[in-house]
């Protein structure tokens, strides 16, 4: 589904990604872990098309398309979804209106007719249950005055509505208490299928107790320095990141 080859990116003059290689197949869950400043969020941002980052080398193929050539909205329409670490508050735009516009633009791209009001509401009600989000929240301005947990649940709600092929969860666990974490994780798990894939970007192992990954990759100084199964995450939790740093230093 997704093939990243030697991806390099910088912001301003600062090189952040220094050659990332990663392959994600349908049905898989990949966790990207690593210490602060290792480039995890940059990777998520580059994949979703954030303009501040300049790609200086490498390739990203998504379902046969050159992802790096696509505008953010085109990536979304092709099936990429990023759950933001810090979802933006947008006064005056309700989540419902926003989702209706987004869903119908994606449907148009897929050659489907727009959803009528009744079907849209039906779909929305169904997906709301998944993340235990209340309609009154969705009537309000997008994320405005939402608690941290509500914002993250709203992200997963949007993900459920748009049914992406590849979801990228950028530090979705940050700022969540254990109950909210469980709700968010349950939502993500319910949406997992053999046809879609998930990249979980996280600093802590905690989230991976709930969203169990097939592969764990450790990002350090802009490169993936170690890959393994879910047990790698447990090892990191027990030993911290220092041994990774030492190993990486020795390899250099």
């Amino acid at each position: 589904m997704l093939t990243i080859k030697n991806l390099q990116a910088k912001i301003g003059d600062k090189e952040i990604l220094k050659g990332i290689n990663l392959k994600v197949k349908a049905g898989e869950v990949h966790a990207i872990m690593g210490p602060n400043g290792s480039g995890k969020s940059t990777l998520a941002s580059v994949l979703s098309g954030r303009e501040e980052y300049e790609v200086t080398g490498g390739e990203v193929d998504f379902e046969g398309k050159n992802l790096l050539e696509l505008e953010p909205e085109e990536r979304a329409r092709e099936g990429i979804f990023m759950a933001f670490q810090y979802p933006v508050e947008i006064p005056g735009v309700s989540t419902i209106n926003f989702m209706k516009t987004a869903l119908n633009q994606i449907r148009e791209h897929r050659g489907q007719p727009p959803l009528d009001a009744v079907s849209f509401l039906q779909l929305m009600k169904e997906k709301m249950k998944l993340v235990q989000i209340d309609q009154s929240l969705l009537n309000r301005s997008l994320n405005e005055g939402f608690s941290g947990g509500e914002k993250k649940r709203n992200e997963i709600f949007q993900m459920a509505m748009l049914e992406p092929k590849l979801s990228i969860l950028d530090e979705t666990d940050s700022g969540l208490d254990i109950d909210a974490l469980r709700i968010v994780a349950n939502g993500v798990n319910a949406l997992r299928s053999k046809n879609n894939a998930t990249i979980v970007v996280t600093h802590y192992q905690r989230l991976l107790d709930y969203i169990v990954p097939d592969f764990v990759h450790v990002l350090y100084k802009g490169r993936i320095v170690k890959s393994g199964g879910k047990e790698l995450a447990l090892e990191l939790e027990a030993k911290g990141y220092d041994w990774i740093k030492t190993e990486a230093a020795l390899a250099e």
Partner: peptide, 11 residues
């Protein structure tokens, strides 16, 4: 905010 909306498929 522009990026957020675009990242959901909105032109």
């Amino acid at each position: 905010a522009m990026f957020y909306l675009q990242s959901r498929g909105i032109s």
